[in-house]
Amino acid sequence: MTNLFSQFELCFPQLNSSCRKLKRPHSDTLLINSVLSFTSLLTATLNLLVIISISHFKQLHTSTNLLLLSLAVSDFFVGFIMFFQIFFINGCWLFGDIMCLLYVVLDYLITSVSIVTMVLISIDRYLAICDPLHYPTKVTPKRVRICVSLCWICSLFFTTALMNENLKRPGRYNSCAGECILVFNFIEQFADFILTFIIPITFITVLYLRVFVVAVSQARAMRSHITAVTLQRSERVTAKKSEMKAARTLGVVVVVFLICLCPYFFFTLSGQDTLLHAPSAIFIMCLFYLNSCLNPIIYAFFYPWFRKSVKLIVTLQIMKPGSCETKIL
């Protein structure tokens, strides 16, 4: 019996009710820790650059950038929360039941805000491209602030409603000390699947496809009005490049969103997400978090102002008096 007991380690050796640590080769553990730490740091850093850029430079205080700011804030905290996934690698949660519940609540809240903000961005781009004449009056900074506030408030309400049973008694589903388990019934999982996956991806896909169709039709209309042969050929090349760039950008947005979110929601809908420290769950959740790392790349790195502002931030030019008035656009 002594030899059998020595084959594993306990999360809390002083407790007989302690969970067992998952045994992995040291090289595998080191690799997983390194990847998670790097992704967490990269996610936080990229989104922090977006936050500083939009907050500091007054020229960037536009309606669209307010949405990007909200997205960056939520994704920044996703990077912070992702760091705690490292503590699930060995199968032990060392911070108690309250912190476990707080971790999962913040996880659901922040990722929900990130997804809803992506929907708001798609609506903003739809109105800007498909209804440009009325866009300045329909989309104002005040209305955007209201929408962003409602986004955070509704996400908090949805998260607390989803966690209702788990909030009543933290740790009620743990079978041993060192576990972090939350259980959701089928209705809760289905509601989460519909409200945070089906509806958002439908909105994003439909609106962006509409934007692409309008952009292509506008480009063709411009070509049809060109009479000079030389100019017509030049315009045709330019329009062709614009169409390809729009298709590529929209394709990246939708495909990345699907790749990162589909596995997570299908996994949770199957009811297998109760063990947050299981290897498959760790991989799927990290893939889910990866979307927050890619968001600033997709939505911000495509903008020249972001590259310029990053240079000013890295070189500490923003520390100079009056730097907030710098022309970025």
Rank of each mutant, 00 (worst) to 15 (best):
M1Y: 13
N3V: 13
F5D: 15
S6Y: 08
L10V: 01
L10D: 01
C11Y: 03
L15E: 00
C19N: 01
C19G: 02
R20E: 04
L22D: 07
K23F: 06
D28E: 12
L30C: 07
L30D: 07
L31T: 14
I32Q: 10
T39Q: 01
S40K: 04
A44M: 15
V50Y: 05
S53V: 15
H61D: 11
S63Q: 15
S63A: 15
S63I: 12
L68D: 06
S74Q: 08
S74P: 01
F76T: 10
F76Y: 05
F77R: 02
V78M: 13
F80D: 05
F80E: 06
M82W: 08
M82K: 10
F83R: 08
F87N: 10
G91P: 00
C92R: 01
G96V: 05
I98R: 07
M99W: 10
C100I: 08
C100A: 12
C100H: 14
L102V: 03
V105W: 10
D107H: 12
Y108F: 14
L109V: 00
S112G: 12
S112V: 08
S114T: 14
S114P: 05
V119I: 08
L120R: 00
R125M: 08
Y126N: 07
H134T: 10
H134A: 04
Y135C: 00
P136A: 12
T137C: 11
V139L: 02
V139D: 01
K142W: 12
R143E: 10
V144P: 01
I146V: 13
I146E: 05
V148M: 00
V148L: 05
S149W: 01
S149R: 05
L150Y: 09
C151Y: 02
W152H: 03
C154G: 06
S155A: 15
S155D: 10
S155Y: 02
F158C: 08
T159C: 13
T160D: 11
A161E: 11
L162R: 05
M163G: 06
N164D: 11
E165Y: 11
L167G: 08
R169D: 14
P170W: 04
P170L: 13
P170R: 09
R172T: 07
C176L: 12
F184C: 09
F186Q: 10
I187F: 06
E188A: 11
E188Y: 10
F190S: 14
F193R: 11
I198C: 14
I198A: 07
I201T: 13
I201H: 04
T202G: 04
Y208P: 00
V211K: 03
A215M: 10
S217Q: 15
A221I: 02
A221M: 05
S224H: 14
H225N: 14
H225T: 09
A228Q: 13
A228V: 02
V237R: 12
V237N: 11
T238K: 12
K245N: 14
A247V: 03
V254T: 06
F257T: 11
F257V: 03
C260W: 04
L269E: 09
G271N: 15
D273Y: 01
D273L: 04
D273R: 10
H277N: 09
C286W: 11
L290W: 06
N291C: 09
N291I: 00
L294W: 11
L294M: 07
N295A: 10
N295E: 09
I298M: 14
F301A: 03
K308E: 01
S309W: 00
V310G: 02
I313Q: 01
L316Y: 08
L316W: 06
P321N: 13
S323Y: 09
C324E: 14
L329H: 15
